[in-house]
Design a protein around this nucleic acid. Sequence first.
DNA 1: CGGGTGACTTTAC
DNA 2: CGTAAAGCCACCC
Length: 105
Amino acid sequence: MSENSFNEKVKELLLEIPIGRVTTYGIIAEKCGMKSSARMVGYILNSLKNQTKYPCHRVVNRFGELSGKNHFQGEELMQELLESEGIEVTDNKVKLSNYLWNPLD
DNA sequence: CGGGTGACTTTAC
DNA sequence: CGTAAAGCCACCC
């Protein structure tokens, strides 16, 4: 019995994201075996946003936009966290070409 | 069981 | 990366 496999897998994957890197909902979804349901990733992250244990701020949409920043505790908290890790945030988004993390890495 | 919603993605134009 | 439409799945009423 794998419990809430999806939820659990997302948590594990979040903890595997290296500092100074970001990933997308689609990648997480696919890595958890539900690539068709990237929406669920954001939905689950919403449950983890209050838990500082998980780096929810390192998850962006496919264009690198901070789609979840509005759902964070502070309005600019997500960007501040990313910048504190060395990630440059411009126009409310990051450069996936430079910061995107691939689980295979 | 059905309808609405959401931190998304893909395809088409 | 513009808009529009469809797919997707958990959760709530």
